[in-house]
Design a protein around this nucleic acid. Structure first.
Lengths: 162, 162
DNA sequence: ATAATAGTTGACTATTTTACTTGGTTACGT
DNA sequence: ACGTAACCAAGTAAAATAGTCAACTATTAT
């Protein structure tokens, strides 16, 4: 499971979509403007999201994109997986000389962790983010009160946390 | 919180270190060979890990790296943060027109998720990965066995044992 | 003291990924 | 018919990743 800016763009765009497409489809132009992402880059991302059956494109005037299913049925792991290029994390994908040997021990450990992260992100849906997060910000302030402090005092240094 | 191959290399190397540096320091050359990472790239990663006080370098013959503290005190989030370049995830770092406005809603949502992921990875230590993962497969004893075998068979390390 | 070891540092290169650009075509609604 | 917006296919600039090379310093062993 990889977590890059690309995946963040995708999740952000999907969140935007979930928030605005309740009634009408949302154009990529609108998302691009709101989230300051280039239109064509969004097109690339949404091409993948569409192929992964996560969004539906509606052509013509009044068209745009809508979620393929309810926000509560769309999880974060799937969004990220849809736009990310799959990579071989093992470097030894089941080679004969790697079976049960020490060289692959750390690979196995990493894979285990990776699976845990994926499972975790799979348990979080767009709906969760919108409802639970917005309702109570306890998670943010409780877990990392530094974030809110920085948000207030030194917004430019947020990156040091993320 | 970013999760890239770079971070994976770092975690993998730290896992390797945790597994092998119980007695003696471990050279980057050994880790490079075991994990198939280039030596110089490891040097770059460990320069950052050292600056973050996560490992200690021991110079001279018989030298290498050791963990700065117990494997149970080193969490995954810190390792990844140490080697990753900090980035600005917001793109609107506290601009006046972004305060409490809709444009930043999805940013906030993403930040909340990012904080959760970070918190999650912070709760997982190297010790957790090694113990919990390995305990089930009872590889611990087997692992130690292999370690000692390899240590003995590697000529470069013979002198440090005897 | 000297040589060998191994960390430390910096600059430099190649590859890949990211993010964006340009310029179209297709489908759909008015 | 016309405008809109999805769809598509190149190509490109910037950044991150991954690795190389070379010199240097601190430590240990002989």
């Amino acid at each position: 499971m990889r977590l890059t800016t690309k995946g963040r763009y995708a999740v952000t765009a999907m969140l935007d979509l979930a928030l605005h497409s309740k009634i009408n489809p949302v154009t990529l132009t609108d998302i691009a403007a709101r989230q300051t992402i280039s239109l064509s880059y969004l097109e690339q991302l949404f091409a993948r999201l569409r192929r992964a059956n996560m969004v539906k494109g509606v052509r013509g005037p009044g068209g745009g994109y809508t979620l393929s299913s309810d926000a509560n049925n769309i999880n974060i792991a799937d969004i990220i997986a849809a736009v990310d290029e799959p990579i071989d994390a093992t470097k030894c994908g089941g080679e004969a000389n790697c079976q049960n040997e020490k060289a692959c021990l750390t690979h196995d450990l990493w894979m285990g962790l990776s699976a845990q992260i994926r499972q975790y992100l799979k348990s979080i849906t767009l709906g969760d983010l919108i409802e639970k997060q917005l309702a109570q910000e306890s998670i943010i302030s409780k877990g990392e009160e530094i974030i809110s402090i920085v948000e207030i005092h030194k917004p430019s240094e947020l990156h040091s946390i993320l």
